[in-house]
Design a protein around this nucleic acid. Structure first.
Lengths: 153, 153
DNA sequence: TCTTGACTTGAAGCTTACTTCAGCTTCTAC
DNA sequence: GTAGAAGCTGAAGTAAGCTTCAAGTCAAGA
């Protein structure tokens, strides 16, 4: 049924703007799925483009691939995800985005006062020490969405 | 002159909340400075605490160590930085913070509309493809401040 | 003086998200 | 049918920001 519109990695890469290596990586990591043709080449269904769009947007929001995989895991496997399904997923982002925006605003509003006033004294300063549980978290890189780091100037 | 208040790595670690390994790393990377006592042990001046506070806050804002080093480089070396010096540094963050906040808000506001409406179609969707110059940027991890990633729930 | 505990170093390890490479196979167009 | 593009795989490389380790040194109190 409709095997005519299956795409190769190259095609998906071109249409999604992602590198073929990234697509292979995502498949290995279980973020996207692909069947194989007789020669062993990947064949992607068009819906994978939607999935990749989600992945990309999620990355921009700062989600890790682990988190994205988890989010995608909540999509139904027995049917093509509907608009409602995707909307549901995006809802969880809203919270996160709101939280991030709030944190950034707090940081910004605290800047002039805090650094300017000289209170930037580690333990006590909320700006230098937000959350008060920094040491608790492990190492590893955390990600900031690309667009949020774009032009420094 | 006032060598009495020089601190060891351990003391700086305790007072700054950073790991000694991180402090050594920062020194290697030229973000902080330390002299040595006769035994070769590091001795830090109290001002390093202020510097570390800046580094921490800057990391929270999403700056890379490279960027932070550059920012710190604009501090005067011939005298102890004044409040005004630190304030000047923080000014450059404001722009960045404002930009990041705006980007996040755009992302948030675009969510319901964009994902919900079904336009999440890669190339065309601003949400999935903000900036339109993703492919231009190299690999490498970008960082999102810890507090902005804290509680997922 | 002796024993801890703190400190030193360089090198290697870790995580995330991919990219690159080598060596080989398949596909497509002429 | 064949050249050359595109794809396959597993392994290794990359970047950032540290941490961990090994093996040895220094410092401070009893």
């Amino acid at each position: 049924m409709g095997e005519r519109d299956l795409m190769s990695v190259g095609q998906v890469a071109e249409r999604s703007g992602m590198a073929t290596s990234a697509l292979r990586y995502y498949e290995r990591e279980g973020l996207i799925a692909a069947t194989r043709n007789t020669g062993g080449h990947r064949r992607f269904e068009p819906v994978v483009l939607r999935r990749l769009a989600f992945i990309r947007a999620a990355r921009h929001v700062g989600l890790s691939l682990d988190e994205i995989r988890e989010a995608l895991g909540s999509l139904p496997e027995d049917r093509t995800p509907t608009k409602a399904d995707w909307t549901r997923l995006s809802r969880s982002w809203r919270k996160r985005l709101d939280a991030e925006i709030q944190a950034l605003e707090a940081l910004r509003d605290g800047l002039d006062g805090c650094i300017g006033c000289g209170c930037l004294s580690l333990r006590t300063c909320a700006l230098a020490n937000p959350g008060d549980r920094l040491a608790e978290r492990g190492p590893g890189a955390r990600h900031l969405p690309e667009p949020l780091r774009a032009e420094e100037a």
